[in-house]
Amino acid sequence: MTTTSGDKKENLVMEHLVSLTYHEKLTPTLNRFVDELLAGRIVGHRCPSCSRVYVPPKGYCPLCVVATGPENEVQCRDRGIVTGFTIITPVAYYGQKETEPFVYASVLLDDADSPLGGQDIVGIPHEQIRMGMRVRAVWKPEGERTVEGISNRGWGGLGSVVEAFEPTGEPDAAPEEYMEHIF
């Protein structure tokens, strides 16, 4: 306990630090996704009702409210479109490892309907990154791939298996191609 000065009385300050431990296994849906990712393949689930493809697979379609499983699995090409992005200038706080401005982009893979969030874009100056830009995955070499950061409560990450996306140099996609898929 520590004390601080008040007007007349001393205020008591009691520190109560809480640490809770959780042991959570990846869901069977994400387990399969991770195995495929480590092998260099990106898979999703195609909804049997509306045909939308979710990457990573959710195990269900939130629009149709139907469960999906291995029988709905599809493989996606590792290239797509930047549908949105932010350049983040980091401020120092506990746990922050970034010191320089970095990219947080959403990438819609060519065969998917749900964009991947939080992707890095490399090979192009930050000020030239734009919506509609066509990109391809930059894979880490096998043996260096880890799935750290992929969790059941994630927002569509690819761990460190795909380091980033880089421009393909192809002409930009028209807004109509991705306007229904912005995240």
Partner: peptide
């Protein structure tokens, strides 16, 4: 249960709605 909480809920909610006969 290896499934996530929302994965537990999806078929459960669907089953309750189907039993009720209500249009979701």
């Amino acid at each position: 249960d290896a499934r996530s909480e929302v994965q537990l809920l999806v078929p459960t909610v669907a089953e309750a709605i189907e039993m009720s006969g209500v249009d979701r």
